[in-house]
Design a protein around this nucleic acid. Structure first.
Lengths: 122, 122
DNA sequence: GGAATATATTCCTATATAGGAATATATGTC
DNA sequence: GACATATATTCCTATATAGGAATATATTCC
């Protein structure tokens, strides 16, 4: 099987760096025309349209027509899924001292093991 | 150009649902053998090895040999990149009241616009 | 050394891009 | 209506999978 489609879920949608750039432009929460994104990111117009299309399919952005423009707006709520997932690991980097202690213990243990087994570490 | 390699960065690595499952097994911060992941997730062994390989390349997991086992451990610090990025949007869903107000204003504005332009919304 | 166990790697295939080029569609202006 | 502007869509191609099957490698035990 191939990789899952980018339109499958938010994780896939934001995997593309350029799409995160596009989201960055919309990060102020206000609406922006496609052309504005094109200028700000110096990307080809079709590329921007496609990326916005993917983001729209997964619900990360919404769009409304305004004359000849299409105004895109971030729907950050969709990113909450990602936040909720990654947040479960927050404790690993917030408690600096704990982390340093944990790592030291781990290192010590690994050294002990490699000494006993006589194998060198990866 | 094709999509970026999964080994390019953390965002691509966690885009695959099965890999997030694997990370989930390692979420307790302790070391786990490949076989344990295989049993817990009921995945094929080669699949698990491959996913762990990808995660290792981007640094999300570390591995040490222990006898005939390879013990994998989560290196959650690598996930901080994702956390930091998505955290910049946190304000959009934390302040519930603000969000509701913003949405109401937006809706009202969109209705006004569609009435004026005579076009129906997407 | 040989069998058993644990894990990684290789080979193959179907699929999904992402970007570029060209084109289509919609809207505004005169 | 003709033309300009804004945006989306189509077509094409190179590339990168993810999973399954088979195999290779490493380690332990007897």
């Amino acid at each position: 099987m191939a990789r899952a489609a980018t339109t499958t879920d938010v994780f896939n949608a934001i995997a593309e760096p350029r799409r995160r750039d596009v989201i960055g432009v919309l990060a102020d929460g206000r609406e922006h025309a496609v052309g504005e994104v094109v200028v700000r990111l110096r990307m080809a117009q079709p590329a921007v349209s496609k990326h916005l299309g993917v983001l729209r399919k997964v619900g990360v952005v919404t769009v409304i027509r305004r004359g000849q423009h299409r105004m895109y707006r971030l729907n950050a709520a969709e990113l909450k899924t990602v936040h909720d997932w990654v947040r479960t690991f927050e404790r690993y980097w917030t408690h600096q001292l704990d982390q340093i202690r944990r790592r030291a213990e781990q290192k010590a243990q690994e050294r002990l093991i490699s000494k006993v087994s006589g194998k060198k570490e990866e």
